[in-house]
Design a protein around this nucleic acid. Sequence first.
DNA 1: TTTTTAATTTAGAATAGTTCTAATCCATTG
DNA 2: CAATGGATTAGAACTATTCTAAATTAAAAA
Lengths: 140, 140
Amino acid sequence: MGIETVISDEVLEQRIRVAGLKPTRQRLGLGRLLFNGISRHVTADELFGEAVNTGVPVSLATVYNTLRQFVDAGLLREVLAGPGRSYFDTDISHHHHFYHVDENRLEDLPIGVVSVESLPQPPTGSEIERVDVVIRLRRQ
Amino acid sequence: MGIETVISDEVLEQRIRVAGLKPTRQRLGLGRLLFNGISRHVTADELFGEAVNTGVPVSLATVYNTLRQFVDAGLLREVLAGPGRSYFDTDISHHHHFYHVDENRLEDLPIGVVSVESLPQPPTGSEIERVDVVIRLRRQ
DNA sequence: TTTTTAATTTAGAATAGTTCTAATCCATTG
DNA sequence: CAATGGATTAGAACTATTCTAAATTAAAAA
Ligand SMILES: [Mn+2]
Ligand SMILES: [Mn+2]
Ligand SMILES: [Zn+2]
Ligand SMILES: [Zn+2]
């Protein structure tokens, strides 16, 4: 009786369809790795490695395509923290991050633990898309 | 009688020496472009372009080397906002940023306008290096 | 069920930003 | 001035990502 919510095949397939995408073998396999109920922060090549290890037949190009499509569909959130790579966050709720610079690893902050007070007016012609708070951590 | 503080050759040379670096033609030329009194957010290739345009004899490799050295010496601050490129901020004081995603451009927030309340305890073994707040803006 | 169609996947090339290498250059010191 | 060690450089290498164009496949049409 684990706490972990394992998504059913039907729900996963439905989620992909609702996003306007065909539930192909590749998307279902990647979706299963991503939406297994645990909040995750993966890079493209980490996810590709997991796919290879678990026998999901997919190319690296498709991993990139699928991550981009899932972000566009609002199923994933892209987080930029370190230079030169994107992290994909399976938790799309509004929250902030620790970034472990020595390990290139993202970690969620407990929600509400950081609050940004008094957001400034955005410059004319612009609107706020998102506010990102990244607390950069190094080994002591 | 401009408001702009133009740094003198002597002060610039001294600043580079204090950082433990030889005041070469390249470092002086780049330092003059960077520390002209105006707060700036430049990328490596923007700075390289300015150097070429103003006749500073320097290679792209040296621009990268110099930016890294200036950051290490605390003369510049590196800001990560968009994917795949670093911005170098001539304002090393503690402040946060707007990031115009449509233009790949950083802009300073007025100091004090955003305050991060109740910083969380960092995980054991880690210490906070910096807190970055980036307000992502898109064209309306 | 077969055929058709358009979306998807793929290998590999291309690209962008950055770092590395190793040869040359030059600022400083004696 | 000569010696020397750091600095500069062109170009190669590297990493993450996107692009291209051909092959595959899911879904719709027949
Ligand atoms: Mn990775
Ligand atoms: Mn640029
Ligand atoms: Zn997260
Ligand atoms: Zn700034």
